[in-house]
Amino acid sequence: MRPFDYVEIRVPAKPQYVGVARLTISGLASRIGFTYDDIEDLKIASSEAITNAVQHAYADVNEGEVVVGCALYEDKIEIMVADHGKSFNFEETKQKVGPYHEQQEVEFLREGGLGLYLIETLMDEVKVHHQEGVTVFMTKYVGDEQVEENVETISS
């Protein structure tokens, strides 16, 4: 049995469907127990990735789709946004994805820079796979325990 539930939607690569994906992600994040602020961060980061795919992935053709996959764990959500338009195995793709480093050129992501900066800032982990299109893999943990559990409390 998998340690997560997986939900995948496919939307046409058109601006009017970005909101559909945002609402889906918002609903899924709410089920796990994310705070309002974290859900807003998830919506902004995923919107940037989806909008990027809509604007740039299929510029030469009038058709295309964006695949948004969400893996729901007890303590985190993993979101994949793929613009290559075909189905993919979640675990396989997760293994192939490489981390984004600020030193790397952001050109491969087909983004002007601000979107990638927002994604990197708002999410806990970001990885990018750029073969057969671009797949952005984003992880957000529920709560702040991954940071705060090692912090000492100082009282005055």
Score class of each variant (00 low, 15 high):
Val147Trp: 05
Ile44His: 02
Val7Asn: 02
Arg2Gly: 03
Gln55Asn: 07
Asp41Ser: 07
Ala57Lys: 09
Asn52Ile: 01
Ser155Gln: 13
Arg2Gln: 12
Lys127Cys: 13
Pro15Leu: 06
Glu120Thr: 08
Tyr17Arg: 13
Asp75Trp: 09
Leu122Met: 06
Ser155Gly: 09
Val126Arg: 01
Gly33Phe: 09
Pro15Asp: 08
Gly27Met: 14
Ile79Met: 15
Ile79Glu: 14
Thr93Cys: 13
Leu28Ser: 00
Thr24Val: 15
Val151Gln: 11
Ala53Asp: 01
His56Leu: 07
Glu74Ala: 03
Gly143Arg: 08
Asn89Thr: 07
Ala49His: 06
Arg22Gly: 07
Val20Phe: 10
Glu107Lys: 11
Met1Pro: 11
Met1Phe: 06
His101Ile: 05
Asp37Arg: 08
Tyr17Leu: 10
Ala71Leu: 03
Val142Ile: 06
Thr139Asp: 04
Lys96Gly: 02
Gly69Ala: 04
Lys86Gln: 05
Val54His: 04
Phe137Ser: 10
Thr139Trp: 01
Ile32Leu: 13
Ala21Phe: 09
Gly69Arg: 03
Val136Asn: 03
Leu118Gly: 12
Val81Tyr: 07
Gly98Glu: 14
Arg110Ile: 04
His129Phe: 04
Glu48Lys: 00
Gly143Ser: 09
Gly85Asp: 02
Arg22Ser: 13
Gly64Ser: 02
Ser30Val: 04
Asp75Lys: 13
Leu116Glu: 02
Glu145Pro: 00
Ile154Ala: 14
Val18Ala: 15
Asp75Phe: 11
Ile44Gly: 00
Ile25Leu: 11
Asn89Phe: 08
Asn62Ser: 11
Gly19Ala: 15
Tyr36Gln: 13
Ala13Tyr: 15
Met138Ala: 08
Ile39Glu: 06
Pro99Asp: 06
Phe137Lys: 08
Asp75Ile: 08
Glu105Arg: 06
Pro99Tyr: 10
Phe34Trp: 11
Gln95Ala: 07
His56Gly: 05
Pro12Gln: 14
Tyr58Leu: 07
Pro3Met: 13
Val136Met: 10
His101Lys: 06
Lys76Ser: 15
Gln146Ile: 05
Ile9Val: 10
Val151Gly: 05
Tyr17Gly: 13
Leu109Val: 05
Ala21His: 13
His129Arg: 00
Tyr141Trp: 10
Gln16Phe: 09
Lys86Ser: 04
Gly112Cys: 02
Val7Trp: 00
Phe90Leu: 11
Gln104Lys: 09
Gly19Ser: 15
Thr35Met: 06
Gly33Asp: 09
Val97Asn: 04
Tyr58Arg: 12
Gly85Glu: 00
Ile9Pro: 02
Val7Cys: 02
His129Trp: 01
Glu74Asp: 05
Ser155Leu: 14
Leu72Gln: 11
Glu145Gln: 12
Val61Pro: 08
Asn52Trp: 08
Val97Met: 07
Pro3Ile: 13
Ser156Gln: 00
